[in-house]
């Protein structure tokens, strides 16, 4: 691979008291690809996410993030908001919108850093100088674009908390995209969606990857999403990596079948993995 990975995780270890949540984990996410992180409940997937996005500080390990510009960042040394400014933006397993603010305001908050600079820390904004008004109009256009992509443009002026569940999931992705990431980290984006909605999610994620060239790191339980859109899958079990590779390899890996599904009967497990993949 000549292109350096957008994210390299090296020897990541994190302990909570006596519990080793993530144990010497190393993997890479290639630029412009969708990398999925899967594993049974409690395998440490969200913990890995929290380390990457600065919510936890790892005990051991190095997390390197490289932008397409060539700049690289050591994420384990950075505050969460600086990581987001550098270009790693995440969504949450339990949706975290700003429920009292309108849908489009949620997307404006996501463009805070850019607008704050344009407003010269509020001075230009307060005087309503053209430089700020121009940036604000651009931000609104960007918000409109992502609302159209996620099919939320009709609900733009409603409070975000009043949207139905599936729409809130899409809004969270739209909001993350408005923050201008080069690596998008999605924590179970398909959780709670019906099959039709997950199909729509697949198309959205593929277009984010293909049209916008954004790398995606994905935690997901829904195999119809993982198997269909991932370029590479990393499988965790109890904080350790047990397999990594393209979906077709991982799907038939006996170690994965045993660990991930926790099923003794190998045939059932294979059926579930492949059947789920085939259904989607």
């Amino acid at each position: 691979m000549t292109v350096p990975p957008v994210l390299s995780v090296e020897h990541l270890t994190i302990r909570f008291g006596g519990l080793v949540a993530v144990d010497d984990l190393s993997f890479e996410a290639a630029p412009g690809q969708i990398t999925a992180l899967i594993g049974p409940n409690g395998a440490g997937k969200t913990t890995v996410f929290n380390c990457i996005t600065g919510f936890y500080k790892p005990d051991v390990g190095r997390l390197t993030f490289r932008r397409e510009t060539g700049a690289s960042f050591l994420l384990e040394r950075m505050d969460g908001f600086r990581i987001a400014q550098a270009g790693v933006v995440r969504t949450f397993q339990n949706i975290r919108l700003f429920p009292g603010m309108s849908v489009v305001e949620n997307l404006m908050v996501a463009q805070h850093v850019k607008l704050m600079h344009a407003s010269l820390f509020s001075v230009a904004g307060f005087l309503r100088l053209p430089r700020f008004l121009h940036a604000e109009a651009q931000a609104i256009e960007r918000a409109r674009y992502w609302l159209e992509r996620t099919g939320l443009v009709d609900q733009a002026d409603l409070p975000a908390g009043s949207l139905p569940y599936g729409a809130q999931r899409r809004l969270e992705i739209a909001r993350a995209m408005c923050a201008g990431p080069s690596l998008l980290c999605l924590d179970e984006p398909a959780a709670g969606l019906n099959p039709r909605e997950s199909q729509g999610l697949n198309e959205l994620l593929l277009s984010i990857r293909d049209e916008h060239g954004i790398s995606i790191l994905l935690i997901e339980h829904d195999m119809s999403v993982v198997m269909q859109i991932s370029d590479r899958i990393v499988v965790l079990e109890q904080g350790r990596k047990i397999a990594a590779g393209p979906p077709d390899e991982v799907r038939v890996n006996p170690e994965v079948i045993r660990a991930y599904l926790g099923v003794e009967d190998e045939e059932t497990a294979v059926a579930v993995l492949q059947g789920e993949g085939a259904r989607a």
Binding site: F81, R96, L97, F98, M101, A179
Partner: peptide
């Protein structure tokens, strides 16, 4: 207002 609504989400969007 974002901070009032959800501080963690605000931080994850680059707000200091």
């Amino acid at each position: 207002e974002a901070l009032r609504e959800d501080e963690i989400a605000a931080r994850s969007l680059g707000i200091n």
